[in-house]
Design a protein around this nucleic acid. Structure first.
Lengths: 312, 312
DNA sequence: ACTGGAAATGTACACGCGTACATTTTCTCA
DNA sequence: TGAGAAAATGTACGCGTGTACATTTCCAGT
């Protein structure tokens, strides 16, 4: 019977199946448009996306890619109302009112969703994140161990919870080492290479005045921009200044000197988010909120070596 | 009437609409799994994907992302048979028998599809590509103009048509400059940084024996790997050897010295592929094959400057 | 051989929309 | 005011599957 159908070339029509089941079978992935203006690294997105994609595939879901243009109103709920998706994962979310409102609407409608790399203070959403706080904590500890005592911090914008996490880890490392926290040693870029480059002068001043001998950057792109800017100003990384990045992206291996960085398991983050979300979707109760933090790892390279610290 | 419906909170059900119309409304994008093993650059995929995504969005199509695992059988046609997609764009296709068979099946079934950055000799498929041949031709001309006369070539595997295109452009540039073509000056990697790194010794020998004073690499990743390997062997780019990459990826700006490279309009490639394919899909005749080649542009940076060439 | 229950098979309907066609209403012009 | 055309509204059905329920078949136990 079944083999007869196969021989006749019958293939079930996914459209009709899904209509009958009232399930789209689609897992939506919402992500900001990222061409040209590479605020986020493509490395980050492709890793997370691959993780989501693999997990969804294994569990029989298709991936619907939903690009959000920068200033488009965030109406995630109608994707559910129109039955285009059965659940969604949101990448590159920001802690701004319109985003919060859109997410609250999802929660109130009991639509299953999961945030990646962004948490919202005071809200019990499902979130999978890397332990960014521990990341910059380890970076700070590492620099202290290498003998650096005047550690600056190059952070990203506050609308990303990761920025706050990283700052906390940095502060914690300073505190444990008995070093003072000085807000003037914290600079803020926007995660782009250019913003790092643009802050090179400010960092140079801090270095030249002896206020700072090491910098932790909140991502590799800014770290690399900073490296380039500092180089033009005659400041050599690994000699005049130690530098630690974050993401352990491809480019961290390609700089001169290679960049010490914090490895974030982005692929696993994607897997975890998809896996948890799909779990919640199969039991059709309102999904229980969770906050996962995956461990990160410091990858030591030459940019944070001991060279200058030993000289005083 | 219509406003009444809106007030009552009616939203049309996309599932039912599509079922009734017998159209999925989905544009499939097939791409190889790319985590960890970064044979392809994430830059390439995210640019092309963004271009496709924007175009599809404007025209009311959703994007269905279909990851293909390396050794999975390529059954693209059943995506159409099950009505999961109405058309598809294939990224990272390879010229190997199983791929050709899968594509021929699509064509025989008159399923609309478009290849990106891969052409198949002897087949009339729809293709959008960058003019890679002109790219390495310009690179060659540029190096000749800078005074280099012993130009080597670091290519990628032959199952990508772009590799052959680039080789042809390289040969053409040599010919026009009256320089001999020597197959021993062509090395083959696999587009990964590591493969470039691994070929550094071979290149070093060619440089030290005076057989080669410049190299064109088929992508930036291999060029950067090569740079790193050569550096460890004491050969300095821009001094002992000129180097040109291809892709003009982010990293080309981050190397030391910055890498001359060929800018490929990947975003536009994505737009063009999606746009043409959607055009073909709306007229529901069997799609007329096309082969588009988008122009590329040489971006001159320090890695191919005149420094050594002027010294002899 | 008869009964009871499990398994296999058959049947009818619902899902929510688009569409074609029938019906009603509105409008135009004589 | 009425005829005719044009527009608005109403109605019925089909799309291909899942599912619940009715029916039949099968089989074991007595």
């Amino acid at each position: 019977m079944i083999e007869a159908a196969n021989k006749l070339g019958y293939v079930p029509n996914a459209l009709a199946q899904r209509f009958a089941l009232r399930k789209s079978g689609n897992l939506g992935v919402i992500l900001p448009m990222l061409p040209k203006v590479n605020l986020f690294s493509t490395y980050y997105f492709s890793e997370v996306l691959s993780g989501i994609g693999m997990t969804a595939k294994q569990r029989g879901y298709d991936l619907l890619l939903l690009f959000r243009e920068p200033h488009e109103p965030r109406d995630y709920a109608s994707l559910f109302r129109t039955q285009k998706i059965d659940g969604c994962i949101i990448l590159g979310a920001q802690d701004i009112p319109s985003e919060r409102a859109a997410l609250q609407e999802l929660r109130d409608g009991e639509y299953p969703f999961c945030l990646v790399n962004q948490r919202f203070e005071g809200e019990a959403f499902c979130t999978v994140d890397a332990d960014q706080r521990m990341g910059s904590y380890h970076a700070g500890k590492h620099l202290v161990k290498q003998g650096y005592r005047r550690i600056g911090f190059l952070n990203g914008p506050a609308e990303y919870s990761n920025s706050l996490d990283r700052l906390k880890g940095y502060q914690q490392a300073l505190k444990e080492a008995g070093l003072p926290y000085n807000p003037e040693h914290v600079l803020v870029g926007n995660y782009s290479r250019k913003s790092g480059y643009g802050l090179a002068e400010a960092v140079a001043k801090l270095v030249e005045s002896g206020e700072v001998d090491a910098v932790i950057a909140a991502n590799d792109r800014m770290a690399i921009g900073l490296m380039q800017g500092l180089k033009e100003l005659g400041i050599r990384i690994g000699e005049h200044l130690a530098l630690v990045g974050c993401d352990d992206s491809d480019v961290s291996r390609m700089t001169e000197p290679p960049l010490t960085s914090i490895r974030v398991p982005f692929y696993e983050v994607g897997c975890e988010a998809a896996s948890r979300l799909l779990d919640a979707m199969t039991e059709n109760e309102p999904p229980a909120p969770f906050e996962i933090k995956l461990p990160v790892k410091l990858i030591e390279r030459a940019s944070s070596q001991v060279s200058l610290a030993t000289r005083d």
